[in-house]
Every structure is written in C-alpha cells, then in structure tokens.
C-alpha cells in the first residue's frame, strides 16, 4: 500500500471515528434531554432529578442553592439546550416533485412586474386589462412571484381569470397542482368563458384623443373635475391614444390648483404616468386592440 493510499485510508477511518463520536454525543444529548423534560413537566417537587449522563453534568450556577434540584435542572438544561440548538442538523433531503414545464418566452421585465404589483395592490388598477393585453403581445411570461395573487384574484373574477390564463403558461397549472389552495374550479372558469371574454379587454381609444385631452384640461379650469367625476375621467385616460399621454401629463402638471380638483388631478397624473411607463416597458408590436 502506497503512502498516499494509506493516508486516505487513515483519514477515512478518522472521519468514521469522528462521525460515530458525534452520533454518540447526539444520542446521549437526546437521552439527557428526555430525562430533563420529563422531570420538568412533572416538577422537581414530585420527581427526583436523575443523575446527569457522562458529560452533561453542570457546575452549579449558584453556590447558595446547591441543594435545589430545580436550579440544577435549569443549569443542566441550559447546557443541553445550547447543544441542541447549536448542533441542529438538516433533516434528510426530500425527494423533489417534477419541476414546472419550461417556458420559452422571456421573463417579464422587473419594471413591468413592479407596475403589475402596484396595480394588484389597488393603485390605478383601471390599467390592468391593458397590462395583460400588452404582456400577451410582447410575449413575456407573467412575473412568477405574482402568480399566486393573480390566481386568487381570478377566483372572484372569472373574466380576470381568463385574461391571466391566456398569458400564464404551464407554470400556473403546475403551481395550482403544487399548492392545493390555488386550485380553482375549472368548471366555474369554463362556464363564464364565453360570456366574460371581452370583459377584460382594454378600452378602445376614442376617435379624437386630442379632443378628450382638451376636455380633461377644461374640466380642471372650470373645476368640474371633482373626485366624484374622477372615475369617469380615469376611464378616458386609460383609453386615450398613447401618443396623447405626454401632452396630458404636461397639462395636468400645469393645471390650476383648486381644492376640489386637486385629488382628481393627482390621481389622473398617476394613471397617465403609469400608463406611459407601461407602454415604454412593453411597447406595442402592434396596437393591443388588434388582439382577437
């Protein structure tokens, strides 16, 4: 046997020795711990404290209470607890389930994913249909981390569910299989599929977007753009031809301040800016409205 081979054999033997020593230690710690827990549950008033196993005795923490078995138990438990915490090893590896099918589409850009997250959080969600239409046209995957939220939202809103599934790809189905709480009744979705299909399409642009922008700006000058009117104006901002967004943003920034219109102005500015950003993140290959 060569020196090198001998060395390997020796180190393997040492490793075995170390492993079996560690196993012995773990076993004795476990035994000691069970003994301490049993007495602690019943109380040292009722149960005598067994003598410590070799290596697990503790120096008394307090010379005055040398005779107190409760203190001795705590002293010993502190040592074993430290060993248990510090010595915690991983459980055996778990067999993995089949991974999600590969998706050839590029991942959703982080900025677009963040926009979706904001809309799902309730901010300017009037733009959600357009986001999905653009995502589908751009050929991106949905942001993986938002899939659970999207699937759960679709449970309450079948039209939304259809829009999600149109772009979700195989991963959504895989996820629903892996997480039972995300399993959505396919029947419910299928039943409404015909009726709800066009409920989640972006609004069509008006014939004259310029006139709409002028009307919005006018509403701020005559102070009719109150919060009560905001929902209606928001829809028209969501529908505007995208080329008119920058002028609208400019005009909204310049609109005269008035207390009754300020909240609307800030909200519309947010919608217009988010939409403008979204279009830059997911530029149209062609108009989103061309999608059948």
């Amino acid at each position: 046997m060569s020196d090198a081979a001998e060395g390997v054999a020796r180190s393997a033997a040492e490793e075995d020795l170390a492993r079996s020593a560690a196993e012995d230690l773990a076993r004795s710690a476990a035994e000691e711990w069970v003994g301490l827990v049993t007495v602690a549950v019943l109380g040292t008033d009722r149960r005598p404290l067994p003598v410590a196993r070799a290596g697990w005795g503790a120096r008394s923490s307090s010379p005055t209470s040398m005779a107190d078995p409760a203190v001795e138990l705590l002293d010993r438990a502190a040592g074993v607890a430290t060993a248990r915490r510090a010595g915690r090893r991983p459980a055996p590896a778990v067999p993995m389930t089949d991974p999600a099918p590969d998706d050839p589409r590029p991942p959703c850009p982080p900025a677009a994913a963040n926009q979706l997250a904001r809309m799902l959080g309730g901010q300017h969600d009037v733009l959600l249909p357009e986001w999905f239409a653009r995502c589908r046209l751009a050929g991106f995957q949905l942001p993986h981390h938002l899939l659970p939220t999207l699937l759960l939202r679709g449970r309450r809103n079948p039209a939304f569910d259809i829009a999600v599934r149109a772009v979700a790809g195989g991963r959504a189905a895989w996820l629903a299989e892996a997480m039972p709480e995300l399993r959505i009744k396919a029947a419910a979705a299928a039943a409404t599929s015909v009726a709800g299909t066009d409920a989640f399409l972006p609004p069509r642009p008006p014939p004259d977007s310029g006139a709409v922008v002028a009307a919005i700006v006018g509403a701020f000058h005559d102070r009719s753009a109150t919060w009560a009117a905001a929902a209606q104006i928001r829809l028209s901002v969501a529908a505007l031809d995208p080329t008119w967004l920058p002028p609208l943003i400019l005009e909204l920034n310049r609109a005269p301040f008035h207390a009754v219109t300020e909240r609307t102005r800030v909200d519309l500015l947010g919608v217009a800016q988010l939409r403008d950003e979204m279009i830059r993140q997911m530029p149209p290959a062609n108009s989103p409205h061309a999608v059948p």
Binding site: L74, A77, A78, V80
Partner: peptide, 17 residues
C-alpha cells in the same frame, strides 16, 4: 411544547445567572 419552553427557560436561566 414543553421541550421548547424548557429550552427557553433554561436559556433565560443562563442569562440571569
């Protein structure tokens, strides 16, 4: 839970001492 609580109590004891 007794094990968890005993562990925590023992560590509190160690800190107090």
């Amino acid at each position: 839970w007794h094990e968890d609580v005993l562990e925590e109590m023992a560590l509190l004891h160690a800190l107090a001492v």
